[in-house]
């Protein structure tokens, strides 16, 4: 029954225009980034390498598809949560707003399973978004720009990764990025369980992300104790796969915290939905 209801939930997602809005926006954004890189990519790269190029010269195919894919992932991971929340924030609250939640509750399925099916359907949509993003970022970029070594800039300096050592990093990076977006999906479903209209959970989800991101980026010691527990701190963990050596313990910690967030948020949503008054 859970799987059947999950399939129904997924069909509901597919039937909503907003689901395609996210995919369309993502396609357009990636298209714009690829166009910008094609038009003026070298000056963007030299912005990063300028101080090094006073003394050194970088030879080789620097502006390649893998680098573009990395830049796309870095740019969009901040914005994609909105596209995910736009759909998942509506999953419970949308039913409440339309009044279909009562009909849903008459089905021979527990309320817990209703929330779980919505969570799984939301996860499937998030996975589709990530796969689409990966396809556009990697496949389209490498088709246009070719492949090559990747220059990654982090707070320690430049890391230049050989071409042969890049694809698995992208694969693992996309997996962690999926887990990050899944947390956003769970948060919006959780907030959706508290709301009667879909705008509230979407706006609240984005507000939480913005608030946590600002706290995380403030270099103030008073926040140092809470920063490791904010899910937004770990949303950029996919980048760790592009460090050398890969900080496995940091990634493991991030995965644990993101999974914990998902479990807690879905649990809260289940408890709330089980207690939710849908009769009045």
């Amino acid at each position: 029954m859970l799987l059947k209801n999950t399939w129904n939930e997924f069909i509901k997602i597919l039937s909503k225009p907003r689901s395609y809005l996210g995919v369309g926006a993502l396609t357009l954004l990636i298209g714009i980034i690829i166009f910008a890189m094609k038009a003026d990519g070298k000056s963007i790269i030299s912005f990063v390498t300028a101080s090094f190029e006073q003394t050194l010269t970088f030879n080789g195919h620097i502006l390649n598809g893998y680098l573009i894919a990395f830049i796309i992932l870095q740019m969009l991971i901040v914005h994609v949560p909105l596209l995910v929340a736009l759909v998942t924030g509506d999953l419970i609250a949308g039913e409440a707003a339309m009044g279909t939640i009562r009909m849903l509750a008459t089905k021979p399925i527990s309320r817990t399973n209703i929330v779980l099916s919505k969570f799984i359907a939301g996860a499937a949509y998030t996975l589709f978004i990530i796969i689409w993003m990966g396809f556009l970022a990697l496949f389209v970029s490498t088709t246009i720009f070719g492949t090559g070594d990747v220059i990654v800039l982090n707070s320690d300096g430049l890391v230049i990764l050989p071409e042969a050592d890049v694809l698995w990093r992208f694969g693992a990076g996309f997996c962690v990025a999926f887990l990050s977006l899944l947390t956003v999906s769970s948060l919006s479903i959780c907030l959706s369980a508290f709301a009667e209209n879909s705008i509230g959970p979407i706006v609240a989800t984005m507000s939480v992300i913005i608030l946590f991101t600002i706290i995380g980026s403030l270099d103030v010691t008073v926040f140092d104790t809470i920063k490791p527990y904010l899910f937004t701190t770990h949303m950029v963990s996919w980048r760790s796969f592009f460090e050398d050596p890969v900080p496995w313990s940091t990634i493991r910690q991030s995965v644990i915290i993101l999974v914990a967030h998902n479990v807690v948020l879905v649990a809260i949503a289940i408890v709330r939905f089980n207690k939710k008054d849908i009769t009045s």
Binding site: E53, Q54, T55, L56, T57, F58, N59, G60, H61, I62, G148, D149, I151, I160, P162, E163
Partner: peptide
């Protein structure tokens, strides 16, 4: 001229 398969760094 420097030709390489990957990215190389040389002093200017």
């Amino acid at each position: 001229k420097v030709e390489s398969k990957g990215i190389t760094i040389l002093p200017k």
